[in-house]
């Protein structure tokens, strides 16, 4: 009885802040409101979302989110390995270094990049000191990508690091004893065992990247519309909550689909992986 009661707050939380909002968004997305304030059921918000303009926005978001995820993976995996192999003395400190920037406000960190990348910013200052011509960094797609990689890299490194740390070293030793060279051991033992961490890292980078609107707004000066910007605009600027909800639903389905695909990729025990994912 007590056990059941103690799950009450959690159920209440789920209901109020997860289930009810999703149902509301779904309801909003399937309704159109006439100027007189009459509601009617319609799927026109969804059909509008498949207009080529918005498909292009969706494609752009997917592309840059995948790029960011890929770069984070390429950078993050070796970093996680280096961290995992460090002597304990330095390891705690190094992991701290990854975590500390996250204590700072996310917006502030992104604003900082604006001053670094700006026309008269730090990098261009250095370039002109060396007698090189100025380069436009800010308000380009590269700036948005950089912002994503910078902000989300720890989410890739930390789960992979955790998995590598927890890995049973005797398996690695056994592989080595059986004559595997370093490459084979990595390919056949370490990498497959770290897949749960990779999957969790990939989804933790991909999801915020595909839905962000702040990074693109600040680092591309409101000109670069990602799907997150489209949703934000519908809610805050043009006051079309119905279309905004439809786009939000589509984004949600997209993330769900990508998670399903990723779960297929990874072998191993799905329950274990699920635990790591969240």
């Amino acid at each position: 009885m007590i056990k059941r009661l103690s799950s009450g707050p959690y159920l209440f939380w789920m209901l109020m802040f997860v289930i009810v909002p999703i149902v509301m968004i779904l309801a909003f997305s399937m309704v159109t409101v006439t100027s007189g304030g009459d509601w009617s059921f319609s799927l026109s918000n969804f059909s509008r979302a498949f207009d080529p303009i918005y498909i292009a926005v969706l494609g752009r978001s997917l592309k840059i989110a995948l790029e960011a995820t890929f770069i984070c993976f390429i950078l993050g995996y070796p970093m996680a390995m280096i961290l995992a192999k460090m002597p304990v003395k330095y390891r705690t400190f190094s992991v701290m270094l990854f975590v500390v920037p996250m204590w700072m406000n996310f917006l502030l960190r992104t604003y900082a990049w604006m001053t670094i990348l700006g026309k008269n910013g730090i990098i261009n200052g250095l370039l002109s000191l060396l007698g090189l011509p100025n380069v436009t960094f800010l308000y380009t797609e590269g700036a948005v990508l950089l912002g994503m990689v910078y902000n989300f890299l720890p989410f890739m490194v930390l789960p992979i690091y955790t998995v590598l740390m927890k890995m049973d070293q005797s398996l690695v030793e056994a592989a080595e004893d059986l004559g595997g060279d370093k490459r084979t051991v990595f390919r056949k033992v370490i990498f497959p065992l770290s897949i749960p961490g990779i999957l969790s890292g990939v989804s933790m980078v991909f999801m915020p990247s595909v839905s962000t609107f702040v990074i693109s707004n600040l680092l591309y000066g409101g000109q670069y519309m990602l799907i997150g910007n489209l949703i934000e605009q519908q809610f805050l600027v043009v006051n079309d909550w119905n279309f905004g909800s439809a786009v939000a639903m589509i984004l949600m389905l997209l993330i769900l689909a990508s998670m399903a695909i990723m779960n297929r990729f990874g072998g191993g025990n799905p329950e274990e992986r699920g635990a790591n994912l969240w």
Binding site: S35, I53, Y54, A56, V57, G222, Q223, M225, N229, L230, Q233, Q234, V237, V238, N239, D240
Partner: peptide, 16 residues
């Protein structure tokens, strides 16, 4: 009510 046209056009400009 014509504001919906302004809304649509603004969205399309920003989405391009």
């Amino acid at each position: 009510d014509f504001i919906t046209e302004y809304d649509r056009i603004w969205t399309e400009i920003k989405a391009k």
